[in-house]
Amino acid sequence: MLLEVKDLRTYLFTKRATVKAVDGVSFYLRRGETLGIVGESGSGKSIMALSLLQMEPKPAGRIVGGEALFRGDDLLRKSQGEMRTIRGRRISMILQDPQTSLNPVFTIGNQLNEAFVTGKQGLARGGVRKAVVDVLRKVNIADPERRVTAFPHQLSGGMKQRVVGAIAISCSPDIVIADEPTTSLDLTIQAQYLRLIKRLQDTTGVGVIFITHDFGIVAKMCDRVAVMYAGKIVEHGPVRSIFNHPSHPYTQALINSVPKLEERTERLYSIPGQPPAPGQELVGCRFAPRCEFADERCRQEYPPQFEGLSRHSEHTADCWRLEDPTWRPSRH
């Protein structure tokens, strides 16, 4: 097991209220595997990912509980100094917006150098330069020797995001966390980028945590998927199993909201209602206020986790409805 997260809790202590952005999240990642984390925006995906690297937004954010075992070592107990040697080298991250995630005043060569120099001591200067060009080539940047001296604003959005990807893989990490890496790219560039990630993963065997709000992308990219809602993982399982037998009403709603090309529907199904406001005190199922099946118990008490759904041991979901065996999906 590469990474095992147990009951992670990250709260944001703002002036107005305490936001339980990550409220008891557990999952795991195997070597060479891609885990999707799906959920509407505001469900706590980014805060969760940053927490793994002790990069929760300070000073408001604080990790208040749980553990994150990376090869058996708890990341959450490490000092900032120790974390620095893990960030970028063992676990790296691709941020959502390529327009803002590169420093505008330094060349991309400079910013890549930094990744190498902090990552691998002992590389000679010529070695670093060669490594920079090599990694740019790896992410399909044409004419990498010349691009090294370019500034971020001279590159297109897709190219910038590939540079960010190059930074992420520069030290051959064990895990790459990609936080909605394609959300701000247009569709064709998006497809290219996804293919690139897939190929890099196939060739390097890196474990990928792929965060997105789009179930369509999950289907293309991931082996397993965890569905996150209001700081909790409400359903989890292999992609096929989840797609065929979504067990949580929220998952069903998310899958329904994916536009299907072949159906050519004009109207997109969208989930009625709003996610809970940040800081709102919640008892019971987080999704109950928007759920068509919710009853009084859903509103009072958080449901237990039901396992082995659709006869798959890894498929779990948190929903009271699954108490009734007739609601449990099974393989036909």
């Binding site: 690297l53 990069m55 970028g88 080298r89 917006d97 803002t100 995630s101 590169l102 990744a115 902090t118």
Partner: peptide, 11 residues
């Protein structure tokens, strides 16, 4: 975000 990314690089 670029400061976030710099920290994520382990700078």
């Amino acid at each position: 975000e670029y400061i976030k990314l710099a920290r994520l690089k382990g700078v």
